[in-house]
Simulated assay, not measured.
Amino acid sequence: MPADDPAARLAERERELTALLARLDADDASLRADRADATADDEHDPEGSTLSGEWQRVAAVRSATQRELDDVRAALALVAAGTYGVCERCGEPIPVARLEARPQATRCVACASLL
């Protein structure tokens, strides 16, 4: 895919994030099943992490992944609207290097640093 094709980059990232969410959902379902097992006493296992701890980790990663997916989809909408690459705060162009590093960026570096 060409480096100057933001729609293709964003669509590829959307596919990656969607696949990651599916894996995380499967992990979550597996952990829920393990946790429902009355014989699983992992809270007292000194050798490994607890099911609760792993469940919290999966939930946190899933939440962050969902937020990024939402941002990517919003950026795809900006591409479709013809406003991709324009800072939502100051209206100036977002530098290409920033968009290459973070294709879903909605603010230029100067405006993003104000947050």
Rank of each mutant, 00 (worst) to 15 (best):
M1N: 04
M1G: 11
P2H: 08
A3W: 03
D4M: 02
D4C: 02
D4Y: 05
D5L: 01
A7Q: 06
A7C: 00
A8G: 02
A8T: 04
A8L: 03
R9M: 06
R9F: 01
R9G: 01
R9E: 05
L10A: 03
L10K: 02
E12G: 11
E12P: 01
E14C: 08
L17E: 09
L17A: 04
T18N: 07
T18P: 10
T18K: 11
A19Q: 13
A19N: 10
A19I: 02
L20H: 04
L20S: 08
L21K: 10
A22M: 06
A22N: 14
R23I: 00
R23F: 02
R23N: 12
D25I: 04
D25W: 07
A26E: 14
D28S: 12
D28T: 13
D28V: 04
A29T: 12
L31M: 09
R32E: 14
R32S: 13
R32Q: 13
A33C: 02
D34F: 06
D34P: 01
D34K: 07
D34L: 15
D34C: 06
A36W: 03
D37N: 12
D37G: 03
A38G: 03
T39K: 04
T39Y: 02
A40Y: 03
A40Q: 07
A40F: 04
D41P: 00
D41C: 02
D42A: 01
D42C: 01
E43N: 07
H44V: 14
H44Y: 09
P46A: 12
E47F: 03
G48C: 01
G48T: 03
G48K: 00
S49F: 03
S49G: 11
S52Q: 09
S52G: 15
G53D: 04
E54Y: 01
E54A: 06
E54P: 00
W55T: 12
W55S: 13
Q56E: 13
Q56R: 10
Q56F: 09
R57C: 00
A59L: 14
V61N: 05
V61M: 06
R62H: 11
Q66C: 00
L69A: 06
D71H: 15
V72S: 07
R73W: 12
R73E: 14
A74K: 14
A75T: 09
A77N: 13
A77M: 11
A77L: 13
L78W: 13
L78Q: 15
V79K: 05
V79W: 04
A80N: 09
A81H: 14
A81P: 08
G82R: 11
G82D: 10
T83K: 13
T83F: 06
T83I: 12
T83Q: 12
Y84F: 12
G85P: 06
G85T: 09
G85Y: 09
G85Q: 07
V86G: 09
C87T: 07
C87H: 07
E88I: 14
C90I: 10
G91I: 10
E92A: 14
E92V: 06
P93H: 11
I94M: 06
I94T: 04
I94S: 05
P95W: 11
P95V: 12
V96E: 15
V96C: 00
A97G: 14
R98E: 06
R98Q: 13
E100F: 13
E100N: 11
E100H: 15
E100C: 10
A101C: 10
Q104T: 04
Q104D: 14
A105V: 07
A105I: 04
A105G: 04
A105C: 06
T106I: 14
V109S: 07
A110I: 02
A112C: 05
A112W: 05
S113P: 02
